Simulated assay, not measured.
Amino acid sequence: MKPELIKMALMLGLLSCVGPFAIDMYLPAMPAMAEDYGVPTAMSQYTLVSFFVAFGVCQLFYGPAADMFGRKPPLYFGLVVFLLASVGCALAPTIEWLIALRFVQGMGAASVMSIPRAIIRDRYTGTEATRLMTTVMLVISISPMLAPLVGSLLMAPFGWPSVFYAVALATVASLLLIRFALPETLPVQQRVPVKITTMFDAFRVLFRDAYFMGMTLIGGMGMASFFSFLSIAAFLYTEYYGLSPTQFSLAFALNALGFFVASQFAANLCERFGGVAVVKWAVTGFTVSAAANLALNLAGVDDFAILVGLLLLGNSFLGLVVPTTMVLSLDDHGPIAGTAAALGGTLQMMLGAAAIGIVSAVFDGTPLILVAAIASCGVVASLLFAVTLRQSAQPVVS
């Protein structure tokens, strides 16, 4: 890969890590936090739901803002909001305050979800964009592999509030990175006029684009499956399977490893077979592995190694699905890349938030709910691909 691509991937990957870091580092703390506040498990899971709702909805504002004012100003604003909210979360006196501050934290984190995608589209398309996107995913993958472990190590001597102070420090580093290393990729002459009608016109174009919507929602079902895992993994692994917070962090990292390794093959596979074909076979593989996990559970097989092994396989397929669908959805929308990335991110986050709410509400302490939720996401993703392919002129190379 060209040195310029590597440099850009590292910068965008580190920026994009801020939101996931605030999620993954926090997971081992959830049982302890629920105990400290004296609230049930479901109440602590609302701190995830509130974060994801804000994380999703606020992208609708950051995307158009990035098209209107350039890429860097909205990043500054969002990260400052995120920094202040992170400190507030560490000091939250009640669970209700924490839920509210997590919402504000999500509002800030939304800026680093959609805008990096638009920055990629400013400079690259096609295979080169996929290669950059997958390298960004490589950097982001460090977060779910290391963040829970860092969180569990901080919790032992300093308690769960230390997790939020660590996130605040990471945010300061991100602000310095934007100031001194990240170039502005949207020249003034290419910026969209500041008009609310312009934003709604762009949304109208995107909602009417079946290919954009299809690829976005396919990636969204992959996100929803992962968020289902996020919402109950800490409780399932520690309370049902008896893992310590550190052991949970290592098991969680193993799942992320599959996504991380597979994503590095996405660009080469897309170059050889075409992006649509890669999505087709990766969605099929994800659905089959998820269905196998559900079938084994229903048959009475309750083995932790099998559960984790099939989750690892499914996440490996998602490592091909998620970055490829992101690139494919934006390819035809260069002039409104910020808005398109924002809408795509919002739809995916809202699917994730809905998955968290549903799974948390019905979680019975056993693996059945988790494997059933992931299998459902796989089936819906497969159906979405079939519908998208019928409504699109995009060819599939078998």
Rank of each mutant, 00 (worst) to 15 (best):
E4K: 11
L14C: 14
V18T: 10
V18R: 00
F21W: 08
M25S: 08
Y26K: 00
A29H: 01
A32H: 04
V39S: 00
A42C: 00
V49H: 03
S50Q: 00
G56S: 09
Q59R: 05
L60H: 04
G63C: 06
G63A: 05
P64L: 02
D67P: 04
D67V: 03
P73M: 07
L83V: 01
L84C: 06
V87M: 05
V87R: 01
R102N: 05
V104F: 09
V104Y: 00
A109E: 02
S111I: 09
S114N: 13
P116K: 12
A118Q: 13
G126I: 12
R131N: 15
L138G: 14
S141Q: 14
I142T: 15
L146E: 06
L146Q: 07
V150S: 09
V150P: 07
M155Q: 15
M155R: 12
A156R: 15
F158R: 13
G159F: 13
V163I: 15
A168W: 13
A170V: 14
T171V: 15
A173D: 08
L176R: 09
E184H: 10
P187I: 12
P187M: 12
P187W: 11
R191D: 08
R191G: 11
P193H: 08
P193K: 12
V194D: 08
M199E: 01
M199H: 04
R204F: 02
V205S: 09
L206A: 05
D209L: 05
A210K: 12
Y211K: 04
L217C: 11
I218K: 03
I232H: 02
L236E: 03
P245V: 04
T246Q: 12
S249G: 08
A253V: 00
L254W: 07
L254F: 13
A256Y: 02
N268H: 14
C270K: 04
C270H: 03
G275I: 01
A277P: 07
A277E: 03
V279R: 05
K280S: 04
T284C: 08
A290Y: 01
A291E: 12
N297W: 09
A299I: 01
G300A: 02
F304Q: 10
A305W: 12
V308Y: 05
G314L: 08
N315L: 13
F317I: 14
L318C: 12
V322A: 04
P323K: 12
V327M: 09
S329M: 11
D332R: 15
G334S: 13
A337P: 07
T339N: 04
G345K: 08
L347R: 06
M350P: 03
L351D: 03
A354R: 02
A355V: 10
V362E: 05
P367I: 02
L368H: 05
A372R: 07
A373K: 03
A373P: 03
I374T: 11
G378S: 11
L383N: 05
L384N: 10
L384Q: 06
V387P: 00
V387C: 01
Q391Y: 02
Q394I: 12
P395S: 11
V396I: 15
